[in-house]
Amino acid sequence: MSEPLLDVRHLSRRFDVSPPWLNRKLERTGKVYVNAVKDVSFSVKRGETFALVGESGSGKTTIARLIVGLLEPTEGEIVFDGQSLSRGLQGREARRLRRRFQMIFQDPLASLNPRWRVTDIIAEPLRAFERGMNDRARRLRVGELLTLVGLSPEDGVKFPHQFSGGQRQRIAIARALAAKPEFIVCDEPTSALDVSVQAQILNLMKDLQDEFGLTYVFISHNLQVVRHMANEIGVLYLGRLAEVGESEALFEHPRHPYTRMLLDAVPDIDMTGRRRKKVEGEIPSPLRPPPGCPFNPRCPFANDRCRIEVPGLTPVGLQAAACHAVEEGRI
């Protein structure tokens, strides 16, 4: 077991979604906040993949953006290799830290500037971090990166719209790798892609991880994909961690009722005859989360305690779950 590279401690993020000042005064309403992420803690080991799984409104993308510094946390701390990132990544230290992590986004078309040639897109991190590099060396490096992700150096002169979705994601990966980072946050990197292309990209990401010893935080709504990629998994529901643990254990013995429900909802591709269980209800609006355990309105095991008291993560077996019923041994 290796040391954690990233440590997320009691992370919370609140968004102000109030109507404008004048409307508030006229309608005599107060400010409105959404707790997109509430008290989330986990750690990611060097060279491994930690997956965050959740549906819409679970706060998974917010966590991704918090980690790379696109958002600042309301509470809590993110510690990267022993150094706290909570001061919003400023000053001289910042550049040294920044070059060690990168992000890959969901929609490769939106994450590549449509007016830039591929060479310039991939070279952007080099311009930022390798100030001493001359133009020739930079272009050689771009050619190397394009080859690495399965494109050809000649593709560098093209614009993003001249590529297919999968190729665009390869370009985004090449850009992420340009400054040789150790740690990459991947926000739904394949959910905009077709299945056969998804397989290519997932394989590529695994190969690169093996080759460069990369550490991934992998965000997805797709349990099958996560199963293929992750060493450890955190299941998010309405901004809180419902369950966290080693991938194998979590898939073998899901503890939290929400995790079980998610697993049951996975379509039966091999037609083993298992029927998808009909799950009741839908995710409540994050604007008005239910009191107590956020999952209680849909949970078959909910009792009065679940409707009042928010459960904390407690260790069960090889993982930890935030569930009163599990803690009390009712399930």
């Binding site: 920044r98 929609d107 939106a110 994450s111 590549l112």
Partner: peptide, 13 residues
């Protein structure tokens, strides 16, 4: 709002 701007912000442009 687009992610190409996010990508540039992440590397500290």
């Amino acid at each position: 709002q687009k992610d190409y701007v996010s990508a540039a912000r992440i590397i500290g442009v």
